[in-house]
Write a protein that binds this DNA or RNA. Structure first.
Lengths: 158, 158
DNA sequence: TTGTGTGCAAAAGCTTTGCATGTTG
DNA sequence: CAACATGCAAAGCTTTTGCACACAA
């Protein structure tokens, strides 16, 4: 998921535009906090939780409250600029979603590391189940839980 | 997921045996609370959360504590007699797993209803990703989120 | 008898809410 | 200037923990 600096600037610019459209469409206010949070997410973090984002902004001496962080995260989820995950624990994790390929997750049960992968079959399952169950499927979450043998657990955390 | 009464008795009997083996294997105590919780789960509930199970047992005047409920749920997960889910909310949901076909879930974003479905492709994805990422995949969770058009939302809850 | 498991209540951790204040439109 | 968004702290909910007691082995 590494991208060049130019590409990043372009993405940041694009998400801001998309966010602005969304705010305007629903007559919501364009506050500096909302843009700061969006930018922070797109510039720095990969998978993160609300508290980590809050702490991180505080550390940069940005004056923001947890309430605003939570509100804005929900807002960003609702306009598809970020996605929300629950990797088995009682803690919501978020991830930017614009400009990055759709993917699923493999979570290591030993070290908690999260790997991303893509498989086209999941799209087939989605559209097929949508038809069969006469349901309009908006999104999905596929998590595989395992113990990684080599690659990941070199970075064991516990 | 409807089964006959005879079949249920057989399953209850089998899970008890499996549970006993597990307890003995790890030198854990065969307490009446543990068996009561296991039986309660297999006889009555489908998807449920810890609090609902606790309340339900209390209502039957069974003396049990939340701590024991949580401990036992974890124990039952560890011996694969139940599975734990998080359907997007900050609340763990559980489900019996022995004697019932492996399946995934479609959650209605409107009414919260949970439908079960099976698709063999998910097994293929699991084993393929396991090989590629050199990871030993123990379990998975695939949730589709959508708005059901006909069937389910006749029972709309909100 | 020994120590694991339980009940109870308190604590912890994440998220939401209420209210006064600030700021966008 | 009116309404919405924010900051702060308190409250809410689910889950975990500490401690004394009970009971399985």
């Amino acid at each position: 998921m590494t991208i060049t600096s130019d590409k990043l600037e372009q993405i940041v610019s694009e998400v801001k535009t998309i966010f602005t459209s969304h705010l305007e469409k629903f007559a919501l206010r364009k506050t500096p906090e909302r843009y700061a949070i969006l930018e922070e997410i797109y510039r720095r973090t990969d998978h993160f939780d609300a508290e980590a984002l809050y702490i991180h902004m505080k550390n940069q001496n940005y004056r923001v409250s947890r309430a605003t962080v939570y509100n804005t995260l929900e807002l960003l989820v609702s306009c598809d600029l970020i996605t929300k995950h629950q990797f088995g624990k009682n803690l919501a994790q978020y991830e930017k979603s614009y400009g990055f390929k759709q993917h699923d997750h493999l979570i290591c049960m030993d070290c908690g590391e999260v790997l991303e992968f893509c498989d086209p079959r999941i799209q087939q399952i989605k559209s097929m189940m949508g038809e069969i169950l006469e349901s309009d499927i908006k999104h999905h979450s596929l998590n595989l839980y395992g113990r990684c043998k080599k690659v990941v657990c070199d970075n064991r955390k516990d």
